[in-house]
Design a protein around this nucleic acid. Structure first.
Length: 736
RNA sequence: GCGCGGUUAGCUCAGUUGGUAGAGCAACCCGUUUACACCGGGAAGGUCGCAGGUUCGAGUCCUGCACCGCGCACCA
């Protein structure tokens, strides 16, 4: 039959993809409410909201591809599929980015601008960034429901955040306390334990005595903190120091009076250094805990700017690093310094700003992860996070991440949720004080009456993203959406945010809704560059998915990212691989050309799945073969083996269907008999099903081809996934 | 220190429950009167990190070791 003139030229992804996406959007079929047929069962994915800090990278591209594959597959299987997109305000990351820019361009700090103006500027930036990201997601072919799009910092999500905060506050899960926290002097805010990255550096360790009369030598890499020491701790069974335990000394250390008590504590490692630890409660996590156990004072000697708060002119107000040198010099001249040695050290730095983290005591808001919750049978948040994975309600793919997850929970401490930045959900607590008393009010909205002042701090961005699976569905309102789509089915995300986000979603959903947030966690690895390096701005080795789409087509980029990339493992971006799949799209294009060239209109009329194919027909073997492969692929899809499914369909289409079946066909159709007609019918039949199976991986080219094939009324995205391959029994046939 | 993952063809990686090793790219030979050169045909290439064990049979399960990567803890 006559061939569409489009097919005479090579496939042009750029022109096609934009047009097809528009077609899909206009069809309204991304929205589950508009899907045809009686769809009882829902299938839901909440898109991990990209940060509004910039542009999409290849990691996002992989995420979008995987989720789109699952959604398209389930949509074709007749599920009520909801893929809800959104973006994340990413509090610290976004604010620090805008602050940097303003500092660079205008030489102004956020304090110069003031809270209101600063928030406006960040808001503008976020909006712009949001628009870029959304358009990029569309280029990738994401079939998500834009009518339900959400933002972690919009009004609806704010209502959810305040409602949860109040519930936790009333339950005593959230408390305000003066505790040691991780302070980022660069970002001027607290950060959680999980926002720390460790960098290995060499440091000098100094061994010395506080004074000539002091009986024990101690070692430290941070002599400047020693002006805040209150004790020397030794191991309870360390014979060397046994007789000194309990003794107290008043000393002057580099001009600062200190009071040192010698105590015994199991946390001390007798083998390390001198086996004695100078305890600085205010500036070391572990020392803070020792101080807890021994009821020691906790003088703060370093402030929020990493400068000294005590001492004489020689150190007061100096940066910690400068003070260190002064103190070392003093030790030297006093003859107290016994040893200096190089050692490897892990320095804690803030993930977002790179600032060196300074542990400090501060009044902050915390979530208590160890408090028994009455309404939940006295289980703690830790237990609520652990249980659904333990009892199999939630499965992680790949499975081995279970252990990492449990291990993290074991080591979990109370979660510091308050941040001293402006961009974010403000802590919904108000204070009012007069001569007689001070009041604190926690509520979803501001209290009535005069004189209330809201807490200045904002909340950790993960506090709001933890509610993502249900805040997006309208909670706290009991919406029908919530009923239909929660718990969601799959949470697909990068393995690096298992703790940050995934665990927090389990926490929030279990605590608030008393149900799991999702049934399956699918983790993908990191997409690296050709040399195996992580893509980063500083290295300048990032690849923009848009460039790939421009050069090879989004389809090619998608299937290249997925094929051969097992769950949880890192992958490398390889232009040759993508190019190969660009060729594959063209191959499909030309297969279509051949098929249409070969068959007649009448073959389309008889191509119904079971029409014309009888047991004993010459077609049975190739139909049976395709049936087997397609069933295999379906099973791979069900078990999240997309990296295998895509390879199978690719291989079948190119090396079986094109290279062999089509080549045979050329011979067969030379004789114009029944066999030849059967073969033509088979070509159409199989090719149409190939397009369906390939569609989740390469949605654009398959949809375009589908529209060219005669007789296809529906868009391919809602065609039925091939499942039934029953061949007609002769008895069921109407023919004699 | 504890834990997790990796080690398979020159390169990048697949390999579901144990049953004679796979893909892409690269390299080699041949082929162009048209579905496609963004192509076709053919051949080549691996003692599956090492050493044991279980089994009729191990890339796959068990034990130990080595190297690489990562997470957590420590980091006085």
């Amino acid at each position: 039959m006559e061939v569409n003139p489009k097919l005479l030229k090579p496939y042009d992804p750029t022109e096609t993809e934009a047009r097809i996406y528009k077609l899909w959007e206009e069809s309204g079929l991304f929205n589950p409410d508009n899907l045809p047929g009686n769809r009882e069962e829902a299938f839901t994915i909440m898109m991990p909201p990209p940060n509004v800090t910039g542009v999409l990278h290849m990691g996002h591209a992989l995420m979008i591809t995987l989720e789109d594959i699952m959604i398209r597959y389930k949509r074709m299987q007749g599920y009520k599929t909801l893929w809800l997109p959104g973006t994340d305000h990413a509090a610290i990351a976004t604010q620090s980015k805008v602050e940097k820019e303003i500092q660079k361009k205008e030489g102004k700090s956020r304090h110069d601008l003031g809270r209101e103006e600063m928030l406006k500027r960040i808001g503008d930036f976020a909006q712009q960034s949001h628009d870029t990201i959304i358009s990029q997601i569309k280029v990738m072919g994401a079939s998500c429901d834009w009518s339900r799009e959400a933002f972690t910092l919009d009004d609806k999500r704010n209502l959810a955040v305040n409602t949860v905060f109040k519930k936790m506050y009333d339950d005593g899960i959230i408390y305000r306390g003066n505790r040691i926290i991780n302070w980022d002097p660069k970002g001027q805010t607290t950060i959680s334990d999980d926002e720390i990255v460790y960098e290995e550096r060499t440091a000098k360790m100094y061994t010395f005595k506080y004074s000539k009369d002091f009986p024990i030598s101690i070692s430290t890499t941070r002599p400047e903190t020693k002006v805040g020491d209150v004790a020397v701790a030794v191991h309870p069974e360390d014979k060397r120091y046994e007789n000194l335990i309990g003794k107290e000394y008043d000393l002057i250390f580099c001009g600062v009076p200190i009071h040192i008590k010698i105590i015994a504590d199991k946390a001390v490692e007798p083998e390390f250094g001198t086996g004695a630890l100078g305890v600085t409660p205010a500036h070391s996590m572990i020392d803070w805990e020792i101080a807890d156990r021994h009821d020691l004072p906790r003088p703060q000697v370093i402030n929020e700017y990493a400068k000294m708060m005590v001492g004489g002119e020689n150190i007061l107000g100096k940066k910690t690093t400068e003070a260190r040198e002064v103190i070392v010099e003093w030790l030297r001249t006093e003859g107290l310094l016994e040893k200096e040695e190089e050692m490897k050290q892990n320095v804690s730095t803030a993930e977002r700003t790179g600032g060196i983290v300074e542990p400090l005591p501060k009044l902050q808001w915390f979530i208590n992860v160890n408090k028994p919750i009455k309404e939940r049978g006295n289980k703690t948040l830790k237990e609520l996070m652990r249980e659904p994975l333990k009892n199999g309600e939630i499965k992680i793919i790949p499975e081995y991440f279970d252990k990492t997850y449990f291990h993290w929970i074991e080591n979990l401490r109370d979660w510091c949720i308050s941040r001293q930045i402006w961009y974010g959900h403000r802590v919904p607590v108000w204070y009012r004080a007069n001569e007689n008393n001070s009041e604190t009010y926690c509520g979803v909205v501001a209290p009535e009456g005069e004189g209330w002042k809201q807490d200045e701090d904002t909340l950790d961005t993960w506090f709001s993203s933890g509610m993502w699976t249900f805040s997006t569905l309208g909670w706290p309102e009991q919406t029908s959406n919530l009923k239909t789509y929660h718990p969601t089915d799959v949470l697909e995300t990068g393995s690096e945010i298992l703790f940050f986000w995934v665990a927090r979603m389990v926490l929030m959903s279990e605590y608030v809704l008393e149900e799991i947030p999702f049934k399956t966690i699918y983790l993908h690895g990191t997409v690296r560059d050709g040399q195996g390096r992580k893509m980063s701005k500083s290295l300048g080795n990032g690849i923009d998915p848009l460039d790939i789409a421009q050069k090879f087509g989004a389809d090619a980029g998608r299937i290249a990212l997925v094929t051969g990339t097992a769950p949880g493992t890192d992958s490398r971006i390889d232009e040759n691989k993508i190019k190969g799949y660009k060729n594959f799209a063209n191959k499909c294009w030309n297969i279509t050309r051949f098929v249409l060239d070969t068959v007649d209109e009448s073959n389309f009329e008889t191509q119904g799945r079971t029409l014309g194919i009888q047991k004993g027909s010459t077609l049975v073997p190739i139909i049976e073969e395709f049936k087997k492969i397609s069933e295999d692929i379906t099973s791979d899809m069900e078990n999240y083996r997309f990296h295998i499914a895509s390879e199978k369909i690719y291989h079948y289409i190119w090396h079986r269907f094109a290279d062999e079946i089509i080549e045979e066909t050329k011979e067969i159709i030379k004789t114009k008999d029944e066999k030849s007609e059967e073969r033509k019918t088979a070509l159409i039949l199989i090719w149409k099903d190939c397009l369906k199976v390939l569609h989740p991986f390469m949605p654009f080219v398959t949809e375009e081809i589908w529209s060219i094939l005669p007789g296809n009324k529906n868009l391919l995205i809602i065609e039925k996934w091939p499942t039934e391959f029953t061949l007609d029994e002769p008895s069921n046939d109407n023919r004699p």
